[in-house]
Design a binder for these strands. Structure first.
Lengths: 209, 209, 209, 209
DNA sequence: AATGAATGAGAATTCATTCAT
DNA sequence: AATGAATGAATTCTCATTCAT
């Protein structure tokens, strides 16, 4: 889970920091537009208003952009979760607790559109080189661990293995339903979200107090 | 849903029929090994022990291989579902009913390992050219419609729109959980499957008799 | 100028003769539609409602189709010229004589649309493999020799070399002007043809009685 | 007549400018040797001592090379015509006037051997994608317009439409005769050129003062 | 550091021609 | 003879990555 830093060199100067941020913004934009495979490093450099040479000054290869982008998402995701999922959340009734979690995730997804493919993408066993899926896995695991932590507070008597399983099932269920949510016209999305909550509530209620 | 036949020409000779099958087998194999994007038509031809020219005699391009493969899966899937999901299934208690459905899908997935990526792959809004996701969508919709049909028999009083939504939620939930199942070591898979069933049962019980 | 017969084998049976004719018709059609280079032998076979195998039964390669087609044109051209350019033509005033020649060539071109590219195409020195240009050259030479023959009757005192040069200049001039004629909207074509005649008349009058 | 610049990107570095020139030289050479259709981009890159990647860095496709080459010819042609066809030329007797024009064109053709195929090539109606013919058309039209302009000075009383037609007839006549000139052994070329002049003079004398 | 030109392996696809049936 | 499947060299073009300036 711990990974080498994807950067070729950490720039000391502020200008470099900005350039990295611009490159990541560009990568986010291009990945979101055409997908990781179809994205070209030249297009990313162009989108960032830099030269391809500069891109490779900071990132050793295309995958490093993805990794760094995932890292940035991870940091932002942690921030969001830190702010919305406090230990007090644990005290809420289960339905409200779920609302909190789904709300936090939902707003994050809403604000980081290109995060969605990363969050959704599934690992295909065998495709060892599916960088997107690997990066996605790590991001989801972060959410899983958060939820696991909250469940631990809320239902201390649960066995650790069970708790982790419940958390994973919840996250993967949400992941599975996200495309349906996307494909649904906005007017009918609340209904889908309601189903999502009902599903998770029905699943968790028997095991969580 | 029905699409133009992806074949360039339907071979009149038996030899050609076999070669098409061999090419599809090869495509299945290569797609499963490295994914659609990374798969090369040359690799597929080689895997099929044919020349690249023969491949293009029957398939106008790489996408056609995927489409044809999805078509073959669809036909086989229909067969499997026809055999395992009879109207009588409807009479079973909900838990057994779910066992049937999940069992059918599970055995199909088990026998067609490279079908899984297709079944799992999600559409990323915006990537209009994501052929895998598009093909996957059609395959899943077939399952959705089957389940919808069964639900109609089982709970005739349900509104059609609700029924379809329930079916979609179930299928996408399973889709979401499949990677978890894959990533779980075989010894612990029964537990995951049990959770899957519990999840779906808890979701459906309140709305299905 | 004499060339090997382009046919792989001269079919004894009438059926084969017909098939050859059909193939040449098809080649004419396809060459006219997309040009020699872009024409594919498969397209020609398809247009002829035959199999590619049959095509190669009669023609050893693509060039042979062109050669045979040129041969057929040559025969037809000779027929046309035989009928329209009789020795009596020689007796006419020069203007009427030119009318005859241009009329004969014009009607032939009108009836054999795909003959035009062949007639027009120029040899590019150096492109030794420009089959179209080579075939075209032979066709034009036939016309040159005819005109030369007529000039010999009409102006017996001319030196042979001069006569041939005059004939060649006339033919190449017409060849040069044909694209202009084609590009001119039909309503204005008579004007272009009139210029063509004026040009040739002004050229020949001083040297031909 | 003005067309989009065929270049993919205008190189900012001097090195790139040189490389473009080298690539165009190579294209000129290869086109001249085997013709546009048979020329391969790899051969052009090799001839230019560059990698195929560099070629595509500057030219998006093979046609762009032709277009750029035609553009270069056009610029050079304009220069040549500017220098040789001054308004004073108009004052000369018609025979000398023709000498000037043919001389200018002749020397240009002599110095740019691979320009000839471009200048000669005819549009075949229907072959919409005949890039060579299209490029050739533009080059010839430049000459036509130049001659038209000179005729306007020389014979101001001519109707514009007539003038343009005369100019076109002259250019296409020359175009038609060029292959004959090429095919003639050098020793006899002056004779052919003399005929060419006699032809044009006889054509123009009645209409131009 | 920054730029962007240079590289070339590798991808998809075509098509003339051969050959098994 | 007829059919059409099989072949594979050849072609155009891409793009991750390196390197000279």
């Amino acid at each position: 889970m711990a990974q080498e830093t994807p950067y070729r060199k950490l720039p000391q100067q502020a200008r470099g920091q900005q350039r990295i941020a611009r490159l990541l913004d560009a990568a986010e934009c291009v990945f979101a537009a055409v997908g990781y495979d179809a994205a070209t490093t030249n297009a990313i450099a162009a989108q960032a208003n830099t030269s391809i040479g500069s891109l490779y000054q900071f990132f050793p290869n295309k995958e490093a952009l993805l990794t760094a982008l995932a890292g940035r998402y991870l940091a932002e995701l942690r921030d969001t979760l830190d702010q919305t999922l406090t230990p007090e959340t644990t005290e809420l009734p289960l339905a409200d607790f779920l609302d909190c979690i789904l709300g936090a995730l939902g707003s994050f997804l809403g604000e980081h559109t290109s995060f969605r493919p990363l969050f959704i993408s599934a690992r295909h066993p065998g495709h060892t080189k599916d960088e997107v899926a690997n990066a996605a896995y790590e991001l989801r695991q972060e959410v899983v661990l958060r939820i696991d932590g909250l469940l631990a507070l809320r239902a201390p008597s649960l066995a650790e293995a069970d708790r982790l399983l419940y958390a994973q099932v919840c996250v993967d269920t949400v992941r599975g339903l996200l495309p349906l949510l996307q494909a649904t016209p906005p007017s009918r999305r609340p209904r889908v979200i309601a189903e999502m909550k009902r599903l998770l509530l029905a699943y968790l209620a028997p095991v969580i107090g």
